[in-house]
Design a protein around this nucleic acid. Sequence first.
DNA 1: AAGTCTATCAACCGCTATTAC
DNA 2: AGTAATAGCGGTTGATAGACT
Length: 359
Amino acid sequence: MGRAPCCDKNGLKKGPWTPEEDHKLISYIQQHGPGNWRNLPKNAALQRCGKSCRLRWTNYLRPDIKRGRFSFEEEETIIQLHSILGNKWSAIAARLPGRTDNEIKNYWNTHIRKRLLRNGIDPVTHAPRLDLLDLSTLLRSTLYNSSSLLNVSNLLGTQALLNPELFRLVSTLLSLKQENPETLLQYLQQNQLCNSQMQNQIPTSHLNQFQTPVSCEAPTCTTSTAACAPLLDQTQFTQDNLEALLSNLTNFNGQNSQENLIPSTLTESYLTQPPSQAYGGSNPSVPVPSESSSFQSLNNNGNQNFNFDSVISTPLSSPTPLNSSSTYINGSTEDERESYCSSLLKFEIPESLDINDFM
DNA sequence: AAGTCTATCAACCGCTATTAC
DNA sequence: AGTAATAGCGGTTGATAGACT
C-alpha cells in the first residue's frame, strides 16, 4: 500500500472543478504565482488538496495552454517522440509548447494508438506487428526477382521471427527453384509437402488447392482427406503453383489462431526493425522502409480470399519535416487525418479487421 | 423517443524522485 | 545520513456527450 491519498484527509473536495473554484485558483496564482501547493488551498480558500490544485492549474488553467485539436505536425511529432521516448509524456509535452502531458497522453490513447494499430503498427514498439504482416509479399518479391539470384538474405531479417520449420521449408523451396525446377518438383513429390508436422499445421483446404494448376485464386474449401496426396502433378507444375504454395504456407498470419503457424509467443513479437523505420519518409529520423517491409492488407474475410494486389505501394516521403511550419489545420476531419497518417505509415489494415483484438 | 454503446478527457490514484530539515 | 514531506509522473477511472439501434 502506498501513502494514503492526500484528498482523503480532512474531507477535501474531489471531482470536477466548479467555475468558482477555478476563479479562486486563478486569482490566487495571479497574485502569488504557482508553487507551494500544500499551502495554496488554505490560502486560496479552496477545499481541495494541493495536488488537485496543481493538476488543475497545470493541465487546464495555465494561460499558455493551447486548446483544441492537435495539428498534423503535432501529431507527427508525438509519434516520433514516442518512438524514441516511450510513454514519457512530460518529456514529449516539453517539445510541444502549450500541450500538457495529460492532454498528450489522452490524445495518444484515444486517437494515435488506435490509428497505429489500424495501420499495422504496434504502438508500444512502433514496429510492424508480425501478426498483421503478409509474408507472402516478401516471398513473392523474391520469387519474381528478375535477377534470378535467390535472395534469401531478404528473408533473414524475419527469419528469427518465423516458425523455424516454415522458414526452412520456404528457404528450401526457393533454393530448389533457383537451382532447378525439376529438383524442386522432386522435392515436393518426395515430401508431399506434408510431413507429419505440416499435416497438423496446414489446413486441408490449403493443401488441396495445389491439386489445381493455377492457384492464385480463392482457395476452395473442400472436405477432402487427401491432404497427403501428391500436391502437384508433374505436368501441372508452374511457377504459379509454387507461388500459390508459398503464399499459402505463409498466409496464416491473419487467420485464426488455431491455424497459425507462427508460435503464439511470436505473435506478440514484432519485427526486429528500428522503430522509426515503420513510418518511412524523408526525415532522417524516419527512414524509408525497404522493399521487404511492404505489407499487405488482410482481406475482409480474414483468411479466404487472398489478394496479391493489395500490397501496399512504395513508401512516400514524409510530407513535412518534423519541425516544419504547420501545414495545418485544426478542424480537418478524422478521415483526412487518417489519410494523412496512412501515407505517413505506409501500410494499412482494413477497417473490417477488428483491431480490438490487438489492443 | 428511449435505451444502449462508444469515445473522450478531466481528474484521481499510486508510485518514484526530489527537496527540506 | 536518514527521514518525511512535497512535487511530478504515468496509469487508470468515471462522468458525460454524441452516435447508434
